[in-house]
């Protein structure tokens, strides 16, 4: 059953990706991006990575959609036709994909018990999480307690980036508004 759900969701992801590439209306592309994030979050839930699914849904479907809409205000809604055929990008993307697939051949099978990640330090975290921190979820205890300073630093970085984006957007939006007003006045006179 799980593999069937995964197959359907991953096929839908591929279909949505093709749609994003082929559509020229950028507004529709943004909406499809939100759909992609919701489907990806569902895949992650089926894979039992609930916290990652949470991040994917809030960042991909929530914040990215809002930011992209803000950007859309400063550009045109229709994407311009490419000037030349994209042979080199296709070659680079295909080559990178082939190298990544080649890399997966070296990985152990999915869910195998005697792989390095399941035999070394991971088990110690599983055993010591509750006596050390009292948090039943091991991922949360690693993120918030064992690597607390690391997470604190990450939060600071994300916060700073958010402030920077807000400042840039405010300036850009007022500039775009000014430009539109000028265009309207020119067309009137």
């Amino acid at each position: 059953m799980e593999s069937l759900i995964n197959m359907v969701l991953l096929s839908l992801l591929a279909v949505v990706t093709i749609g994003v590439v082929r559509l020229r209306n950028l507004f529709a592309v943004i909406i499809l991006g939100g759909i992609y994030s919701f489907l990806m979050a569902s895949v992650l839930i089926v894979l039992d990575a609930v916290d990652v699914a949470m991040t994917e849904a809030s960042v991909g479907a929530g914040i990215s959609t809002v930011l992209m809409l803000t950007v859309l205000y400063m550009t045109r809604v229709e994407e311009a036709k490419p000037v030349h055929t994209p042979m080199l990008p296709i070659f680079v993307a295909g080559g990178t994909g082939a190298v990544l697939v080649y890399g997966t051949w070296g990985l152990p099978a999915f869910g195998l018990a005697d792989t390095p990640i399941n035999t070394h330090v991971g088990m110690a975290y599983m055993d010591l999480s509750i006596p050390d921190t009292g948090i039943p979820n091991v991922v949360t205890s690693v993120l918030a307690s064992y690597r607390g300073f690391d997470t604190f630093g990450e939060t600071t970085v994300v916060f700073t980036a958010g402030i920077g984006v807000l400042l840039l957007l405010r300036r850009g939006v007022s500039l775009a508004r000014l430009r539109r007003k000028q265009q309207e006045e020119e067309s009137k006179s």
Partner: peptide
């Protein structure tokens, strides 16, 4: 879900 994605596309 399949039908909805078809509509969105």
């Amino acid at each position: 879900l399949i039908l909805l994605v078809a509509r969105a596309l």
